[in-house]
């Protein structure tokens, strides 16, 4: 089913912020915003939930730490204990001071990489992915707000968006993808 959207293009971030707030308070639904750089506070103004990606990083870090402990315990204590420079290898606890650096490194390694992979997957970023910004100028200096136009009087909505400071307004019939 095709959805009717209106693309309103703004040429300034402050103008966009103001327009987003006005559009939301006029009870129009903003379905997406494309900006060339992170506009401070825009996520809050659009009303999207805070990201949980930092929590995943913490969990991935715990995984990394566990992997490091399990790996070194198996290799140095269980499987093939050796006397290396007199460092005690009878228990993991006794040998642990020598393992701290690698426990730290693997924590960072797992947390960093898996978090970034999660980010790429969630935001659908990978090589050969086609860009979906509707106007190429939105990576340069233009700000595009996509507003649901269904069940609204198009002329009123257009007039409204024009009054919020949009410099270009266009009507789009879009294949529904969600």
């Amino acid at each position: 089913m095709a959805a009717t959207k209106i693309y309103a293009i703004y040429k300034d971030d402050d103008l966009l912020m103001q327009a987003v707030k006005q559009t939301r308070s006029a009870n129009y639904h903003i379905s997406e915003v494309f900006t060339p750089f992170p506009v401070h506070g825009l996520d809050h103004a659009v009303g999207i939930a805070p990201t949980r990606i930092a929590i995943t990083a913490f969990l991935y870090g715990l995984v990394g730490l566990s992997v490091a402990v399990a790996m070194m315990n198996f290799m140095m204590i269980q499987d093939w204990p050796q006397n290396i420079g007199g460092k005690p290898s009878f228990t993991f606890y006794q040998n642990m001071p020598a393992f701290i650096p690698i426990m730290f490194e693997l924590t960072v390694f797992f947390a960093g990489h898996l978090m970034v992979i999660t980010f790429y997957m969630r935001s659908k970023l990978w090589p050969f992915k086609k860009a979906e910004n509707p106007d190429p100028r939105t990576t340069d200096d233009h700000f595009l707000m996509e507003v649901d136009a269904e069940n609204h009087d198009l002329e009123m909505l257009t007039k409204f968006l024009y009054d919020t400071g949009a410099s270009e307004i266009s009507l789009i019939e879009k294949e529904e993808d969600h």
Partner: peptide, 27 residues
């Protein structure tokens, strides 16, 4: 296009982008 991984600049992408940068900086 390949190098940019299809970056589109959605508001949610930017929100995650900033969080990821901050956590990576912390790490």
């Amino acid at each position: 296009g390949i190098l940019s991984f299809g970056w589109s600049g959605r508001v949610k992408d930017w929100q995650r982008f900033e969080e990821v940068s901050l956590v990576l900086a912390g790490l």
